[in-house]
């Protein structure tokens, strides 16, 4: 293994092993978030289970994307963003939203896929490799191995293995989104954030990505925001329901969808509002 890896790139080394009984990958506690003066999250607390898919659902403007974007500090790009409380990454308990934690290091540990596919204006190969280069990985054969592995994990290897040098823009929307998933997976993140990853895709591409997400949970902990309740019910293990910046209910997906304990959740799930 490359020497630079151990120094410059915590995320490229093997993920810290959790003890078998520890099932929590991250813990959100009393998280508040402000866009300048506007408070978008109010004291959100929830666990993220290891190697599970956690779905965050809720009506538009409920803060579900805002919560997701706290996990990798992407809010820091925009002036006026302010966090209070904690998102602790287990087992070390590192608070991802602490002011003293470098957001770039956070992003090296947490991968993200966005609503609209956003491949870089580069070749398919370079797209997936970009996250590895950022972490100081230069060894050609290792980069190639990682890229191939990530493309296979994202179930797109068969479609692109003959044209890795072609621009990523030549792919279809669904392929581009799977490429973005591969790009996020290549550095082996501890958490994978998906922000409505199928909202810009047609039903066939959506089905492909949904079946892919279920498989991904074997390797990585997934947090997905979706406005599609069927999708949350199909692919997630735990579900969090949010409304007006507050977490209303959190539980096993089956329980949330069949037997919610809060009326607001029931009303939303049965389509009475949202």
């Amino acid at each position: 293994m490359n020497e630079a890896l151990h120094i410059a790139s915590p995320a490229v080394t093997t993920p810290t092993p959790l003890s078998p009984e520890a099932t929590i990958r991250a813990r959100v506690s009393n998280l508040d978030f402000w866009y300048s003066k506007f408070q978008a999250l109010h004291s959100v607390s929830m666990p993220i289970h290891n190697n599970k898919v956690t779905a965050i659902i809720g009506p538009s403007g409920c803060g579900k994307s805002t919560l997701l974007r706290c996990f990798n500090r992407i809010h820091d790009l925009y002036p006026g963003a302010r966090y209070e409380g904690a998102i602790e990454l287990m087992p070390d308990g590192l608070n991802l939203v602490s002011r003293s934690v470098d957001p770039i290091l956070v992003r090296l540990m947490v991968g993200m896929v966005f609503q609209k596919p956003n491949p870089f204006p580069k070749s398919i190969f370079e797209n997936v490799a970009s996250g590895l280069y950022v972490r100081g990985l230069r060894n050609r054969s290792e980069v190639e191995g990682r890229v191939e592995k990530a493309l296979k994990q994202a179930a797109i290897w068969d479609e692109v293995q003959d044209r890795l040098k072609k621009p990523a823009y030549e792919l279809s929307g669904g392929q581009q989104q799977r490429l973005c998933i591969a790009r996020a997976l290549a550095p082996e993140p501890k958490l994978l954030l998906l922000d409505e990853p199928t909202s810009a895709l047609d039903p066939i591409a959506t089905a492909k990505i949904e079946s892919l997400i279920a498989d991904l949970a074997h390797d990585v902990t997934v947090v997905i925001v979706t406005h599609n309740m069927g999708q949350a019910a199909r692919i997630s293990d735990q579900t969090a329901f949010m409304h007006m910046g507050k977490l209303i209910e959190f539980g096993e997906t089956e329980q949330i969808f069949t037997n919610p304990t809060v009326d607001q959740t029931r009303d939303y799930i049965t389509g009475r509002f949202g």
Partner: peptide
């Protein structure tokens, strides 16, 4: 902006984002 967010999400610094994503774009 989505390309810039993608660049940051992968762990790039602003300089890396400018030269590896924005200028090629």
């Amino acid at each position: 902006m989505s390309l810039r967010e993608g660049a940051f999400a992968i762990g790039m610094s602003r300089v890396q984002m400018a030269f590896q994503v924005v200028i090629p774009g």
